[in-house]
Simulated assay, not measured.
Amino acid sequence: MSQVIAFDFGLARIGVAVGQAITQTASPLDTLKANDGVPNWTQVEILLKHWQPKKVLVGEPFNMDGTDQEITLRARKFANRVHGRFGVQVEMVDERLSSAAARDELFEFGGYQKIKKSQVDSIAAALILESWFSNQNS
Protein backbone atom coordinates (compact mmCIF):
# COMPACT_ATOMS: atom_id res chain seq x y z
CA MET A 1 0.00 0.00 0.00
CA SER A 2 1.45 3.36 -0.90
CA GLN A 3 -0.97 6.31 -0.76
CA VAL A 4 -3.64 6.79 1.90
CA ILE A 5 -6.11 9.70 2.05
CA ALA A 6 -7.80 10.86 5.25
CA PHE A 7 -10.89 13.01 5.64
CA ASP A 8 -11.82 15.01 8.74
CA PHE A 9 -15.58 15.19 8.16
CA GLY A 10 -17.55 18.29 9.03
CA LEU A 11 -20.83 19.85 8.03
CA ALA A 12 -19.28 23.03 6.54
CA ARG A 13 -15.74 21.83 5.78
CA ILE A 14 -14.04 18.49 5.22
CA GLY A 15 -10.31 18.43 5.93
CA VAL A 16 -8.17 16.31 3.63
CA ALA A 17 -4.68 14.89 3.99
CA VAL A 18 -2.61 12.44 2.01
CA GLY A 19 -0.08 10.04 3.46
CA GLN A 20 2.63 7.75 2.25
CA ALA A 21 2.54 4.32 3.86
CA ILE A 22 6.23 3.63 3.22
CA THR A 23 7.47 6.77 5.00
CA GLN A 24 4.40 7.00 7.26
CA THR A 25 4.17 10.74 6.72
CA ALA A 26 1.06 12.83 6.19
CA SER A 27 0.56 16.16 4.47
CA PRO A 28 -2.53 18.37 4.69
CA LEU A 29 -4.26 19.20 1.41
CA ASP A 30 -6.86 21.84 0.61
CA THR A 31 -10.02 21.63 2.65
CA LEU A 32 -13.24 20.82 0.81
CA LYS A 33 -16.29 22.98 1.35
CA ALA A 34 -19.41 21.07 2.29
CA ASN A 35 -23.07 21.94 2.33
CA ASP A 36 -24.61 20.29 5.39
CA GLY A 37 -21.94 17.59 5.19
CA VAL A 38 -22.22 17.04 1.44
CA PRO A 39 -19.04 17.83 -0.51
CA ASN A 40 -18.67 18.57 -4.17
CA TRP A 41 -18.33 14.93 -5.21
CA THR A 42 -16.43 15.94 -8.35
CA GLN A 43 -13.67 17.38 -6.14
CA VAL A 44 -13.55 14.13 -4.16
CA GLU A 45 -13.31 12.17 -7.40
CA ILE A 46 -10.45 14.39 -8.63
CA LEU A 47 -8.56 13.81 -5.37
CA LEU A 48 -9.01 10.06 -5.55
CA LYS A 49 -7.99 9.88 -9.21
CA HIS A 50 -4.93 12.05 -8.61
CA TRP A 51 -3.62 10.27 -5.49
CA GLN A 52 -4.99 6.77 -6.26
CA PRO A 53 -5.09 5.73 -2.60
CA LYS A 54 -5.17 2.10 -1.60
CA LYS A 55 -7.23 3.12 1.42
CA VAL A 56 -9.36 6.06 2.51
CA LEU A 57 -9.69 6.96 6.18
CA VAL A 58 -12.57 8.94 7.63
CA GLY A 59 -12.36 10.40 11.10
CA GLU A 60 -15.04 9.01 13.40
CA PRO A 61 -16.01 11.59 16.02
CA PHE A 62 -16.83 10.25 19.46
CA ASN A 63 -17.50 11.87 22.79
CA MET A 64 -14.65 11.52 25.26
CA ASP A 65 -16.47 8.59 26.91
CA GLY A 66 -16.57 6.73 23.58
CA THR A 67 -20.25 7.31 22.84
CA ASP A 68 -21.47 8.62 19.50
CA GLN A 69 -21.93 12.31 18.88
CA GLU A 70 -24.70 13.72 16.73
CA ILE A 71 -22.21 14.02 13.86
CA THR A 72 -20.87 10.46 14.20
CA LEU A 73 -23.64 8.94 12.06
CA ARG A 74 -23.13 11.66 9.43
CA ALA A 75 -19.41 10.85 9.23
CA ARG A 76 -20.22 7.15 8.79
CA LYS A 77 -22.72 8.02 6.05
CA PHE A 78 -20.04 10.08 4.29
CA ALA A 79 -17.63 7.13 4.51
CA ASN A 80 -20.26 4.78 3.07
CA ARG A 81 -20.89 7.18 0.21
CA VAL A 82 -17.18 7.46 -0.60
CA HIS A 83 -16.97 3.66 -0.72
CA GLY A 84 -20.17 3.29 -2.74
CA ARG A 85 -19.39 6.02 -5.28
CA PHE A 86 -15.73 5.27 -5.88
CA GLY A 87 -15.25 1.63 -4.85
CA VAL A 88 -12.31 2.42 -2.57
CA GLN A 89 -11.60 0.68 0.71
CA VAL A 90 -12.72 2.97 3.56
CA GLU A 91 -11.87 2.66 7.23
CA MET A 92 -13.21 4.72 10.12
CA VAL A 93 -10.61 6.06 12.57
CA ASP A 94 -11.27 7.42 16.06
CA GLU A 95 -10.60 11.14 15.78
CA ARG A 96 -11.12 12.31 19.35
CA LEU A 97 -9.21 15.53 19.97
CA SER A 98 -7.73 15.72 16.44
CA SER A 99 -9.12 19.23 15.82
CA ALA A 100 -7.92 20.45 19.22
CA ALA A 101 -4.47 19.00 18.51
CA ALA A 102 -4.47 20.66 15.08
CA ARG A 103 -5.27 24.05 16.65
CA ASP A 104 -2.47 23.53 19.17
CA GLU A 105 -0.04 22.65 16.39
CA LEU A 106 -0.98 25.71 14.35
CA PHE A 107 -0.75 27.96 17.39
CA GLU A 108 2.75 26.70 17.98
CA PHE A 109 3.75 27.73 14.44
CA GLY A 110 2.56 31.30 14.16
CA GLY A 111 -0.08 32.33 16.61
CA TYR A 112 -3.75 31.51 16.81
CA GLN A 113 -4.85 34.80 15.21
CA LYS A 114 -3.45 33.71 11.84
CA ILE A 115 -5.14 30.31 11.88
CA LYS A 116 -7.81 29.68 9.27
CA LYS A 117 -10.49 27.15 10.06
CA SER A 118 -9.67 25.36 6.81
CA GLN A 119 -6.10 24.84 8.01
CA VAL A 120 -7.36 23.29 11.24
CA ASP A 121 -9.52 20.79 9.32
CA SER A 122 -6.76 19.61 6.99
CA ILE A 123 -4.18 19.42 9.76
CA ALA A 124 -6.71 17.41 11.78
CA ALA A 125 -6.99 15.04 8.79
CA ALA A 126 -3.19 14.72 8.75
CA LEU A 127 -3.19 13.94 12.49
CA ILE A 128 -5.88 11.30 11.96
CA LEU A 129 -3.68 9.75 9.29
CA GLU A 130 -0.56 9.85 11.45
CA SER A 131 -2.50 8.26 14.31
CA TRP A 132 -3.62 5.48 11.97
CA PHE A 133 -0.03 4.89 10.80
CA SER A 134 1.09 4.74 14.43
CA ASN A 135 -1.60 2.16 15.27
CA GLN A 136 -0.56 0.04 12.27
CA ASN A 137 2.87 -0.34 13.87
CA SER A 138 1.49 -1.43 17.25
Rank of each mutant, 00 (worst) to 15 (best):
S131C: 09
P53E: 02
S134C: 04
G87L: 10
L11G: 01
K33P: 03
W51G: 03
Q113V: 03
S118P: 00
G37A: 02
H50C: 04
L47Y: 13
T25A: 09
K116D: 08
G19M: 12
P28Y: 07
E130V: 00
I71M: 07
T72P: 06
T23M: 07
Q20T: 13
K114M: 10
H83E: 14
K77H: 07
S118G: 01
D65H: 12
D8V: 00
Q89W: 12
N135G: 05
K49N: 09
K114T: 14
I71A: 11
R85N: 12
D94W: 05
N137E: 13
Q119G: 01
E108T: 03
Q24G: 03
K77P: 00
N80R: 12
S122A: 13
R85P: 04
G87F: 14
E70T: 13
Q20S: 12
H83F: 07
G19Q: 13
S122N: 06
T23D: 01
L129G: 02
T25H: 08
G59F: 08
L29V: 04
G15I: 02
A6H: 10
V93Q: 15
F109C: 06
D68M: 13
V88N: 12
A6I: 07
A100M: 12
K77R: 10
D94M: 08
A21G: 11
A79G: 15
D30W: 04
I123F: 15
Q89M: 11
I123K: 08
L32A: 08
I123Y: 11
Q3C: 10
S118A: 08
A101V: 14
Q24D: 05
A21W: 09
L11K: 14
E105W: 13
V120G: 02
D94C: 13
D121T: 08
A100Q: 14
Q136D: 05
Q3V: 12
A125K: 00
E45M: 09
K117F: 08
P61E: 07
M1Q: 10
V16H: 03
V58A: 12
D8G: 10
T25L: 09
A34F: 03
V16A: 05
I128Q: 03
V16M: 11
A125F: 02
M92E: 03
V56T: 11
P28K: 05
L11N: 08
I14A: 09
R85H: 11
F107I: 11
Q24K: 08
A102K: 06
W51V: 00
W132F: 14
V82D: 05
R96G: 01
V56Y: 09
I128K: 02
I14N: 00
P61R: 02
D68A: 15
P61F: 01
P39Y: 06
S131Q: 13
H83G: 12
F109E: 06
E60S: 03
T23I: 12
V93K: 11
G84K: 15
V120R: 00
I14C: 09
Q24V: 00
R103D: 06
F62T: 10
T25C: 09
K54I: 10
D30P: 07
S131F: 01
E95K: 05
D104C: 02
I5S: 02
P39C: 11
L48A: 01
F9L: 08
E95P: 09
P61S: 07
A12Y: 08
H83T: 14
D121P: 09
M64C: 03
S122Q: 02
V120S: 03
Q89E: 15
S138C: 10
S122E: 06
D8Q: 06
